[in-house]
Amino acid sequence: MTQDRGMDGRNAARAPFPRRSRRRWTLAGGCVGAWLLLYLIAGSVISATLLLAALAATAAIAVVFLRSMGVTRDHPWIRQLASRPWRDGQDVLRVAMNHLPDVFVVAPSGALFAPNVVEIQLNPEDLASLCDRIELSVVTASVTEFYEEQIAKYRARFATPERAEVYLLADEWVPRGRYRLRQGHPATAAAQREFAYAVPRYSDADADLNEWDWREPGPDLTIVDAHTLTDSGTATVMENTVPPVPVLRLITGDLVAQTRMTGAEAGRGSVDLVLPNVSTISRKHARFAFSEGRWWVTNLGMNGLTVNGTPAETEQPLTDGDTIRWGSRPDAVTSRVEIG
């Protein structure tokens, strides 16, 4: 039996599991689990099957009744049940990035095609909380770089010769803590690169001035940032260019790890920046973020972290040539930081 290989002789990368297939397998697994539970309770194969059928029929009738009453997936009750309020904007973005391969298209020949432009829709509150921590232009550049890495990982091909781009939009119909992925439009992506636009809510007398109305992207304006309000309270439009993110490089002995992706995690586990597999280094030891024109490090491990000999209790700025010790012990592994 021969094994399929790519053009370079290596094993061909498997296509990502389609979301619809994952849902079907999840539903099938839930049905099997429910049947086993009913079997343990009833002690009979026939009784368990009948009870499962009765529950399925009841659920179907409930769905039909709710739809007849106008309760669909866009209803506030359903959206509230679907929300994940414990996730902030950065958590939602991290989950969405892990599912970027879901937008790939599988051709009949088995080849993978990647859209050149991808749109990530977030709840306005999640997008605003993300912008409070990291500049959106930096986030866009980092997510686009990660998308290109996924394309290379799965050996997908672009349908058109244009460059890859991932952009974020606010959509009030997306529940908090959730996201929506879809193929984007080049015109919308170009508008987002040029402008950032947001206005405060003044429609209601009791409206909170800290809330924002996020408008749908048009040919000349795109909602991308919640930081365009002047001191006078008027809405402004500003040019939003994407500055280059300098490479962050960790040199640990003979091991070199580097990234341009903000929010990258370092450790000895399944992370973006892999460190030596020693006991003083946690599986997820630190997070590196690019903000305000510089790189910052935040300790995530239980063993502690020092920057130039000073314990990093909070987020610490980094400069080229800094030294990071992975642990509080004097003999802990150290890394030299190179930026640029």
Score class of each variant (00 low, 15 high):
103 V>Y: 06
10 R>N: 07
216 E>T: 15
268 R>P: 03
270 S>C: 09
34 A>I: 12
226 A>N: 15
239 E>H: 14
81 L>I: 11
277 N>W: 05
315 E>M: 08
290 F>T: 04
278 V>G: 07
306 T>D: 10
184 G>K: 03
112 L>A: 02
174 V>S: 07
152 A>S: 12
51 L>K: 01
211 E>F: 05
288 F>Y: 04
285 H>F: 08
88 D>A: 06
147 Y>F: 06
230 T>K: 13
37 L>P: 00
299 N>P: 07
155 R>A: 15
328 S>Y: 14
42 A>Q: 14
98 N>A: 14
258 Q>C: 14
164 A>D: 05
260 R>F: 06
291 S>D: 07
212 W>F: 13
237 V>M: 14
130 L>R: 03
181 L>S: 06
69 M>K: 14
152 A>Y: 05
227 H>R: 15
144 T>Q: 04
180 R>P: 01
304 G>H: 04
17 F>P: 00
240 N>F: 08
53 A>I: 09
154 Y>T: 06
8 D>N: 10
28 A>E: 00
113 F>A: 11
312 A>R: 09
20 R>E: 00
103 V>F: 05
308 N>S: 08
236 T>L: 13
67 R>E: 12
21 S>K: 00
183 Q>P: 07
107 A>V: 08
52 L>C: 08
232 S>I: 13
236 T>W: 06
101 P>Y: 02
94 R>I: 08
308 N>F: 01
332 A>P: 02
104 F>W: 00
182 R>M: 15
228 T>K: 12
34 A>K: 08
116 N>V: 04
191 A>L: 13
170 A>I: 05
109 S>R: 11
307 V>P: 00
295 W>M: 03
166 V>T: 03
292 E>P: 01
207 A>T: 11
265 E>H: 08
196 A>L: 14
19 R>A: 06
207 A>G: 13
307 V>C: 06
118 V>A: 08
180 R>I: 02
194 E>Y: 13
8 D>W: 09
